[in-house]
């Protein structure tokens, strides 16, 4: 009798684990084939000088990595990425949060219209956004030129994308514009999870509006903020399309990001070993951030 129950239990257990294997297997196989294996391959290539043709036989150790960190353009690209991270976290996300507070609650006339307007750029493909903004910044017909002529008159032309001092700012404005709606929507979703009673209770206790936001609303929607920060940082490290469409990292590499750098100095120059080393650096930057974030921010919650 007992043995029969045991065998039945074992049977169910086996059934369950088989179920798990079958459900996980497709995703696991795809993930391994298209993510894990290529990452390992890139890691291997990164130790070679290799043109992408012929055999891998020119082993160079960590030379590619040393070369990257000694290359001023790579440092520019890295710094640009860090600038994008910094500006996103301290400029874009707070602005998105303010917008969410302004139009996130029902009852405000037109809030749906504004939500739609702010979210709209996110719907557009990045490459399309880049091309549209290239027109907007056009020195002959663009909007900056139009306003400069309106204010100062005469035949002034403003070529922001061709100017080493302003090209990065001009591109960051586009990134800001493109993703602010996305973070706003995340915050609006978070806001809707904040119980109205809590806010009312805080107000009764004498909290002012600022205190309500700081002590009630923000803690209650912490998970939305955690996700938004995470996506923003990882996204900032992977910026490519917009920068590419607007100037391929130029002028003179001043708007290069890590990924455009990888394309310009890996693919375009047939330097696949070196390109792999750059890819590995980007991978580890994201991985380190991820581990740190999971451990100290997400787990903290």
């Amino acid at each position: 009798m007992n043995t029969r129950i045991d065998s039945q239990k074992a049977h169910i257990k086996l059934k369950e684990s088989l179920m798990i294997i079958m459900l996980v297997a497709p995703a696991l196989i795809i993930f391994t084939t298209f993510v894990v294996i290529p990452v390992i391959q890139a890691g291997y290539y990164s130790f070679f000088k290799w043109k992408g043709l012929g055999p891998l036989n020119d082993f160079r150790g960590i030379e590619n990595f040393i070369r990257a960190f000694n290359h001023p353009v790579f440092i520019t690209a890295l710094m640009n990425n860090l600038k994008i991270v910094f500006l996103s976290l301290f400029l874009q996300l707070p602005t998105a949060f303010l917008l969410a507070l302004l139009i996130g609650r029902k009852g405000f006339f037109g809030s749906m219209v504004f939500r739609g307007l702010y979210f709209f750029p996110y719907v557009l493909a990045e490459i399309v956004v880049g091309i549209i903004w290239k027109f907007i910044y056009d020195p002959q017909y663009g909007i900056p030129t139009f306003f400069a002529r309106l204010i100062k008159g005469g035949d002034i032309q403003i070529g922001l994308l061709g100017n080493l001092d302003y090209a990065f700012t001009a591109i960051f404005i586009v990134i800001f514009w493109k993703y602010i709606g996305f973070h706003m929507i995340l915050y609006i979703a978070g806001l809707q999870g904040v119980p109205k009673e809590l806010e009312d209770a805080a107000v009764i206790d004498g909290a002012n509006k600022f205190q309500v936001v700081l002590y009630v609303i923000i803690p209650s929607m912490w998970s939305a903020i955690i996700i938004s920060v995470f996506l923003s940082v990882i996204g900032s490290f992977n910026v490519f399309d917009i920068v590419w469409a607007m100037g391929q990292g130029g002028p003179v590499h001043s708007t290069e990001t890590l990924v455009t750098y990888l394309y310009n100095f890996g693919f375009k120059r047939f330097a696949f070993g070196y390109g792999s080393a750059i890819a590995i650096i980007i991978f580890f930057l994201c991985l380190i951030f991820n581990i740190f974030y999971q451990k100290y921010v997400v787990a903290e919650k």
Partner: peptide
């Protein structure tokens, strides 16, 4: 060259 030529492409 035209203003902003460092950022212009062949189509411009």
């Amino acid at each position: 060259f035209q203003e902003g030529y460092l950022g212009a492409d062949q189509n411009q």
